[in-house]
Design a protein around this nucleic acid. Sequence first.
RNA 1: UGCCCCGUGGUCUAAUGGCAAGACGGCUGACUCUGGAUCAGUUUAUCGAGGUUCGAAUCCUUGCGGGGCAGCCA
Length: 569
Amino acid sequence: MSEEATKQDNGEETAASQSQHFIKEIINGDLEEGRYELVHTRFPPEPNGYLHIGHAKSICLNFGLAEDYKGQCNLRFDDTNPSKEEQEYVDSIIEDVHWLGFDWEDRLFYASDYFDTLYEYAVRLIEKGLAYVCDLSAEETREHRGTLTEPGKNSPFRERSIEENLDLFTRMKAGEFPDGTRTLKAKVDMTHPNLNMRDPVMYRILHAEHHRTGDKWCIYPMYDFTHGQSDSIEGITHSICTLEFEDHRPLYNWYIEKLGIYAPRQIEFARLNLSFTVTSKRRLLELVTEGRVSGWDDPRMPTISGIRRRGYTPESIRAFSARIGVAKRDSMVDMALLEHYVREDLNRRAPRYLAVLNPLKVVITNYPEGQSEMLEAVNNPEDPDAGTREIPFSKTLYIERDDFMEDPPRKFFRLAPGREVRLRYAYFIKCDEVVKDENGEIVELRCSYDPETRGGHAPDGRKVKATIHWVSADHAVDAEVRLYDRLFSVENPLAEEGDWHSYLNPKSLEIRENCKLEPALAGHDKGFFCQFERLGYFCIDPDSSEGKAVFNRTATLRDPWKNIQKRQK
RNA sequence: UGCCCCGUGGUCUAAUGGCAAGACGGCUGACUCUGGAUCAGUUUAUCGAGGUUCGAAUCCUUGCGGGGCAGCCA
């Protein structure tokens, strides 16, 4: 295949999946120039926490690029700091990437796989006079580094002989020295304007148990001395990372060049920021450890496991990732966009049911006592193949409290005294009487139905302004429903004054214990999702048990009435 | 203030020297047995100043604004 043809093919793939972002332009250029022959990327998380929606963007980018260019993408754990990393995190990351729908085949790697090679590389730099063992303490090292505006000064240990360095480094590895007493540093330039180039630490002493290598090592390579070489070893062509590593690129290239090994290209893009939440492992970890949420997979969390439990689909996450694009400018994507993509996906696929989350009892006064009948309902108006089902109707029903107002404002179309509405798939009913308790609380509505309107059609052609959902009291299934809202009540809690914790949305979780569901909603397992008509999309939570269903609200439906109410206030 | 990066509607992204486009959100209307969905319409943008050019969001200079970097974290 000619170069021209290859390029054309890639162009077509591109149009189908992602937009033509700057990384693809760089890749196309590299391919044209013959710098690389095929595209090989990698997703390199540190197993020190759960993955979040920001990682999803990176995963979709890296694996998506591999798909687009018919290349490959590795999964690699950047596990060079045993004090923060755990097997639990490794397991969750593997599950999350799979769930998103990506496959690394047999290319699951760990930076710790390369510890021996990395050690050899370090020795090679010492032998070239490009690395030295430094006895400065952490604090002294900081003092020698200089500041943003002043140059640093050389370490007194900088000119040690190669033999001494080799000896000391060997003894570091052998465990002769306590933590923090020595480091191996690269000999670059203490006056370099880029602080990363001022004799960066390559190895530190850390007598810690590593989740994979156990106690084999007591010295561990730093990120900068690991990442590029790992990319090189795996034959990565394009090493894509976030913006904060931009200043590390010169060092990335320096190690590769001095080592004389294969050179990948590092490209940086802007990490995802999402409104009404935080996307930083550190802060998410805080929310978990401080008990602000129930765990990493709390459905309010922007973690992949939280989003999954919330009921988001991998398809919607991928569509979202493709749409937000890839660029270098800092941005804050609107949470509404993510919500849009779940709704779009679920609208197409979710079967509809009737469920009442805040029940108000309705008695149909002219319906015969003890009688019931089955009414036909459409399962999914978006999908003709989804068929129909039957719903029981009887004299006593529940409707949503929000669907009745004793003194309705303008533009409220639902039930009110003397007003007629349609019960979805059932009959027209009219509210004749409002029953209250001693506190003035409405406890029951007494309504009459029109038998001629069975199925929801009026033979005389008269119209009603609203159709509301309902459940037959005698046939209802009880359930707990958890209503989730945004985790924070402001767009960007980190940009607000004071502690970001104080902007946590106190109403981010509302538990409804006494929900009434139509019978067809009984007996579903984890993984089941549906739409409760007029309310939103819901899924079964893993907390469900044989006797008690627990549903999570994934997303509400679009709700113009809510906007009208806001404006009326 | 040393080095690096970035400034396009309310938000995100496109336009690669040649009509500033799309998506989300908002608004209006049509349709509707979900105030859903769908459809149609609409609203709002190139940070400023110079320069190069027939022509600049795009190239150059400069100012302003935002972000990142002084871990033996990644």
